[in-house]
Design a protein around this nucleic acid. Structure first.
Lengths: 205, 205
DNA sequence: AAAATCAGCGTACACTTGTAAGCTTAAATA
DNA sequence: TATTTAAGCTTACAAGTGTACGCTGATTTT
């Protein structure tokens, strides 16, 4: 059921979005979420500092909202990748390419996840952790079904794969296109390493 | 040649140390380097805020010094691990155990590296990157010698191994002892996955 | 039509921050 | 011994921060 919003609620939603967008747009290589101030964000969103509180009790609350949105964006991306794979692409090639595209097009979104994963707020850290687990769970399912691995082993493999890809993404942020291409090649080799190792160990047991 | 320091230079060195120690001791799960202020650090070190400038031109300069020290600590740790391995320990078991001990005993030092790796200062990021490359280079050498792998393949393998261990360390920070033990087991399995995969792929070529 | 709600505003306050300027005083140098 | 050097201090200031308080005016509810 989608409730039709009144004029007032619509406007409120709009400002809320403006705040979120303002915060995202202020993120950069040189500016992390924790270095944003309530006043800066409000200014960028075009409202008075004190009006901020009509939408979020805290910068923290805004931040958590942003992490959720970032996770959502990332999962949507995964779905796209799976579609491409289903229609005949190589798993590793497609996954890495998709991820790298994501980082190129949404670097600030990725930076948020990357930084808050080891940030100073436990709530943030566990929010990012949850998103990561989502990611791993979906990949585990896939591996289970595709390779007939036990779920436990698939979890371990998936975790390693995601770790490597995520890390490569982090590294890519500071590289130019040429170096990124090299990184992508190396990353694919590493993923194959893990996949081969998993195959081998699964046959044994 | 070790120059004997005059009384004055000795005192200066002492305060410099006090500043570095103060900064390290203020780091915690809830407080990152970038959230430290020059005044806080100076206060903790027992000097006036303006005296800070007699030692560092900047909080940035202090931070880079800290990253270097952290990297040094980590490399010392690696040497210990190699000694233990040389005297008959399992490579993977020993490495993971040593690393986990490091994180337990020096969590704030590790946190510094972890956070600044994706922080807002390019100088910091590349400093941490350098330390990481050191780490990987030493491991590559080891793998080369131990397994007769080509240096290129060893680099790729070492990179994957370090990524996985480093990531596990990051995860360990938020876990209790029980969960940490589980994590250690999982991490070892993942390292074996990579090692097996590398063996397999090296035989082929 | 009257009353209640509430998003957004302006003002205000108490803090913290980085850092400039100039002084003191003990150590180093000549 | 006389002079220079420099680590550390005090004072001072401008800039930025989070947020409390109370008002306004349009929308919503009664």
């Amino acid at each position: 059921m989608t409730t039709t919003l009144g004029v007032r609620a619509q406007q409120k939603e709009k400002t809320r979005r403006a705040l979120i967008d303002a915060a995202f747009s202020q993120l950069s290589a040189d500016k992390s979420f924790s270095s944003l101030s309530l006043r800066e964000v409000s200014r960028e969103a075009g409202i008075a500092p004190t009006s901020f509180y009509r939408h979020f009790s805290d910068m923290n609350e805004l931040g958590l909202t942003m992490v959720d949105e970032a996770g959502l964006t990332l999962r949507q991306l995964m779905r796209q990748a799976r579609e491409r794979i289903a229609s005949g692409g190589s798993v590793i090639q497609t996954s890495v390419a998709t991820f790298m595209e994501f980082i190129e097009n949404n670097s600030n979104v990725f930076r948020l996840l990357l930084r808050e994963r080891s940030g100073t707020s436990a709530a943030f850290r566990s929010a990012v952790y949850r998103e990561n687990q989502h990611f791993i769970a979906e990949l585990s399912d896939y591996l289970c079904r595709a390779n007939g691995t036990s779920l436990e082993n698939a979890r371990i493999e998936a975790d390693a794969l995601v770790t490597i890809v995520f890390n490569a993404g982090a590294e890519a942020l500071d590289l130019d296109n040429e170096k990124r291409a090299e990184l992508a090649i190396r990353t694919k080799k590493q993923l194959r390493l893990v996949a081969k190792g998993a195959m081998l160990l699964n046959r044994k047991s």
